[in-house]
């Protein structure tokens, strides 16, 4: 059984010409809130991650978290803990789990789930106030999650 999956994965991967398969939002495996494997199958890019964390249009993490390293971005929120030192406090797998779906690590967390596509109540089409349609996708892509994780890992004290 395991063999068959592996075999078909290999076929799919080679058919797409990718090095490794992307894990879909509905197929992520959490272990104690952590996610061991790269969601995109690729390493993250910390410089891209830094942009995503600070950008209102992307992660908008600074809406809730302050980050000293992002002092060039105005207005940091204070809903969640400061992210300074997050790379010391958490392993890469833990950070990936937190960013993909923080509710797996912190029960009932106010932090949005950035890599999730199901189980919402009245999901909308972005910020239009209209109902979600077939363009609905996770808040961040698999690679964007990896980029953010790579950036968080650099936040050491």
């Amino acid at each position: 059984m395991r063999r068959t999956i592996l075999a078909s994965l290999t076929i799919a991967v080679s058919a797409l010409g990718l090095e490794a398969a992307e894990i879909a939002p509905t197929a992520v495996t959490f272990e104690d809130g952590s996610v061991a494997q790269s969601l995109s199958g690729q390493p993250g890019n910390a410089a891209e991650g830094r942009k995503i964390v600070g950008s209102k249009k992307l992660g908008n993490c600074v809406a809730c978290h302050a980050v000293s390293d992002l002092s060039d971005v105005p207005f940091h929120g204070e809903i969640g803990p400061m992210l300074d030192g997050a790379g010391d406090r958490w392993s890469e797998a833990e950070l990936r789990g937190i960013v993909a779906n923080a509710k797996m690590m912190f029960e009932g967390s106010m932090m949005p789930s950035f890599y999730k596509t199901e189980g919402f109540f009245r999901p909308g089409k972005a910020y239009t106030g209209k109902a979600a349609d077939d363009t609905f996708g996770p808040l961040l892509s698999a690679q964007q999650i990896e980029d953010v994780v790579a950036y968080l890992a650099t936040l050491k004290e």
């Binding site: 940091h76 204070e78 949005p112 919402f120 808040l139």
Partner: peptide
């Protein structure tokens, strides 16, 4: 208290649990 939308936030998340705090600006 219902957590709505893709951000899964309720009125209470912002206005009961976090009044007094900054959310971005």
């Amino acid at each position: 208290y219902a957590r709505t939308g893709q951000l899964e936030l309720s009125c209470a998340n912002c206005h009961e649990d976090n009044y007094g705090n900054m959310i971005r600006a």
